[in-house]
Design a binder for these strands. Structure first.
Length: 183
DNA sequence: TTAACGTTTTCTTATATAGCCTGATACA
DNA sequence: TGTATCAGGCTATATAAGAAAACGTTAA
C-alpha cells in the first residue's frame, strides 16, 4: 500500500492576541497577504509555494498545504522562531499544535462499478450522485474519515487526523470492494 | 411592526480526484 | 462562420480559524 499525502492541515495557538498590521510589517522576509475586505486572517508563507499559515488576531493559527508531518511541524516551529526573533514573543510558547486533517490519495487495483458499490455499501454510509459529482462518497461508520472513490479506481481519503487512520480507512474500503465487487 | 438579541451559515485556504460547462483561441 | 481543441472554473469532501452576513426568535 502506497498512500500518498496530498495535504495536511494543522492548528495551534500562541495564547496571546496579535496586531496583524504590525505583524505584517515586521515579517518583511516572508510572503505575506492581508486583505481584511476579503478575509480577516493574515496569510504567511515562509517560503514561496510552501505551506500557508493563516494567522488570526486571537493568536490562533492554521497551517495548510504541507505534504508531510515533518514539513507541517517545521513550518510551525520556524514561524514561532521568527516571532521570537522579532520580539513579538518572548520565547516559543506551548502552542498545542496538532494535525487536524490529512488528505491522501490511493488507487484500487482495478476499475470500480460505482453504482454496484453504492448498493453494496448501503445508502446510510454512501452518497453517489453522478450528475452532481462523479465520485462516490463513502463514510465508514467506525472511522473518522471520508473516502471519495472514482470509477477508474482512484481514491481520495480526507478527514483523517493521521496517516494510520487514512490507511485503515483505505483497508476498510478495499475489504468492502472485495466483498461486493469480487473479481 | 420593529428592534434587539441569539444562532446559524458563509467565506477563505490547501489538496487530491473526474465530469461537465463555458469562454477563448485556432483553423478550415 | 462553424467546428475543434484547450484551459479554467465549478461541482463534492474534510479541517481549522473568526468576522460578517443572514437568519430566527422574542419582547415591546
Amino acid at each position: 500500500m502506497t498512500i500518498e499525502i496530498a495535504n495536511i492541515v494543522g492548528s495551534g495557538s500562541l495564547h496571546r492576541e496579535l496586531k496583524l498590521e504590525a505583524l505584517e510589517s515586521d515579517l518583511s522576509t516572508a510572503y505575506l497577504e492581508h486583505d481584511p475586505s476579503n478575509y480577516h486572517g493574515l496569510y504567511v508563507r515562509l517560503v514561496e509555494d510552501g505551506p500557508l499559515i493563516t494567522v488570526y488576531r486571537s493568536g490562533k493559527y492554521i497551517v495548510t498545504g504541507a505534504t508531510s508531518f515533518d514539513e507541517l511541524r517545521e513550518t510551525s516551529e520556524v514561524f514561532l522562531r521568527n516571532l521570537v526573533q522579532l520580539g513579538i514573543l518572548d520565547e516559543s510558547p506551548e502552542t498545542g499544535f496538532t494535525a487536524q486533517n490529512v488528505v491522501c490519495t490511493e488507487e484500487l487495483p482495478s476499475e470500480v462499478d460505482l453504482t454496484a458499490l453504492s448498493i453494496g455499501l448501503g445508502l446510510e454510509s454512501v452518497e453517489y450522485e453522478p450528475e452532481q459529482f462523479p465520485g462516490l462518497i463513502y463514510r465508514p461508520t467506525e472511522l473518522p474519515a471520508v473516502v471519495l472513490v472514482f470509477a477508474n479506481g482512484k481514491v481520495v481519503i480526507t478527514g483523517a487526523p493521521d496517516v494510520e487512520t487514512a490507511e485503515k480507512t483505505f483497508e476498510s474500503l478495499q475489504t468492502q470492494v472485495d466483498r461486493y465487487l469480487p473479481g
